[in-house]
Design a protein around this nucleic acid. Structure first.
Lengths: 301, 301
DNA sequence: TAAACTGATACAATAACTATACAACGGCCA
DNA sequence: TGGCCGTTGTATAGTTATTGTATCAGTTTA
């Protein structure tokens, strides 16, 4: 191991570094300090050779020789990636209610894989947005997001957990592709429901908005600066409150249009949805995909 | 941590920003202030590189270069608490703190892809559990989960959103493989933090528990029945409260062992963690992987 | 004695530094 | 429309630094 002691010419041959250069490195930067014979000839160990090789790596990376010595204790990079895919379409109504029933059954026994199976089946038959509108969203409305905190059942909480992982996954897979206008998305009011917000985010992402998602409590005063810093063109707020309260709670902004989603967003015919409204604005948000959620006159702030 | 690294040409090659432009940015706007050699040559650190990348993100968003600095500094109020972490003498410590710093920088400009990049890099170098312990968890503790609701910044909320999608994805990918004992996982107290619970779920899943995740508010009386119906062998509760309150709030159960996680779980040496405790029980939860969180005598209920 | 090694000095090719100038662009106003 | 101005990226000039290599005189090795 420490047996090998090599003279400079050998090191030069092994590393490809000119002997003169090796001496210069030692003299100028103290990078390698080989042992010496009594008369002063350099003797390099295996460790020195390693160190020289490391130096060569650093040089390769663009680090100047004068800095290499200080740096000789670092890590390095690496990368890769991957993705998945959904499927195609055909409409029917009883299909959805059957899916829903199966999901409800799975949820009642906390069967996560049962939920996954149904979801997968649905995704194999319909595009993601339809699955969300006809399955995920009703599921959320009927169960996970439906009750007062005190009246929540364990099944509701289980569905919330499952939905949040499903939607989180979807969001992550989808967002790299989007390239539309940026939207800042946040909740209004205390103790917001993360699932509602994730659902809303998926909705927006599917419509090619780039979403900056702010999860959890956040003082409304922060929103405008956040919108500016994130490059958003509009702010979309989810609120579980009634329209009037929500509008009152929403921040004023001269800079960004602010839209409300959630029960606060009430259409003229009284229908509410976790989703969203839109003003007859040129910057129309969530347009044209599902007209249920697109009608003039809905609540805006 | 103050290691001199790359000269300007390397930075130019890496970021695509002309050296002349880099100097102009520094001179005119003070955006990046690299270290200097004694003779005045610039030396950029990884952190500087990251900052430059963030600037590019801002430029791409149409934010003028003259304002980029303000935006960046807004999200990064001082190089504070990063160093306040417990000084665990990890050999790779600087790697992690560098990752953390980069993530903080990305978060400051709401750069989701920046966060993804760092995470991917970390995952290419370390196993997932280490990444979670050294990167995700500190990130959560320092930022996303650190503050009183009123003191939360938009960056905190943004990190929460990102973390919840990341963790949700991880959970979904991992859970099909697990086959260990079942665990019912829920939060104690009002307005629980979903990210904390997801983090805990990942922790448990990585230790081969099958997790039934109950997200959001849930009356404690429901827990025992849910455990029974889901086939759980134990109940694990996350609580943001102090140990005494949490224990008081936890349900009694004759049927299932109940464990506490979160600040409520305090080790004998006073260290707290989002993670968890364990009784000297044969059904040991979260055993043997990270002994920081495994010591007899920790809070149980 | 020839070959190899030593420190010291010198040199040339790059590369970086500062400072100033300039061109392209967009906004604004008459 | 035309002209002015602020912003911003780049170009240029004149210096200075970095760094690999060459050379030299003297010493050691084999």
């Amino acid at each position: 191991m420490s047996k090998g002691l090599y003279p400079i010419r050998t090191i030069a041959a092994m590393t490809g570094v000119n002997p003169v250069t090796l001496r210069a490195w030692e003299r100028r930067y103290g990078i390698i300090r080989p042992q010496r014979t009594p008369k002063g000839h350099r003797l390099y160990t295996e460790r020195d050779i390693d160190r020289i090789r490391q130096v060569l790596v650093l040089l390769e990376r663009g680090i100047p020789i004068s800095q290499a010595r200080q740096v000789l204790d670092e890590g390095e990079p690496g990368a890769q990636s991957g993705a998945a895919e959904p499927a195609r379409a055909e409409p029917d109504d009883s299909v959805w209610s059957s899916f829903l029933a199966r999901m409800r059954t799975s949820a009642s026994v906390f069967d996560e894989h049962g939920l996954d199976d149904v979801l997968q089946e649905a995704h194999s038959l319909f595009p993601a947005s339809r699955v969300r509108h006809h399955l995920i969203e009703p599921l959320y409305r009927q169960f996970a997001g439906s009750r007062e905190p005190d009246a929540r059942t364990a099944q509701d909480a289980f569905l919330s957990g499952w939905l949040s992982t499903v939607l989180g996954t979807r969001l992550r897979h989808r967002s790299p592709r989007t390239s539309g206008p940026r939207l800042l998305l946040a909740s209004l009011g205390a103790a917001p429901d993360p699932v509602a917000l994730l659902l809303l985010a998926c909705e927006a992402v599917d419509r090619d908005y780039r979403v900056t998602l702010l999860l959890g409590d956040l003082p409304v005063q922060q929103l405008e600066a956040a919108a500016r810093d994130s490059g958003a063109e509009a702010i979309l707020l989810w609120s579980g409150q009634a329209a009037e309260e929500a509008v009152a709670a929403a921040p004023d902004s001269t800079e960004f249009p602010i839209f409300l989603a959630g029960p606060a967003a009430r259409s003229p015919d009284g229908q509410t949805g976790p989703f969203i409204p839109v003003p007859g604005d040129s910057r129309d948000i969530l347009t044209g995909v599902d007209t249920r959620y697109h009608a003039p006159g809905w609540a805006t702030a």
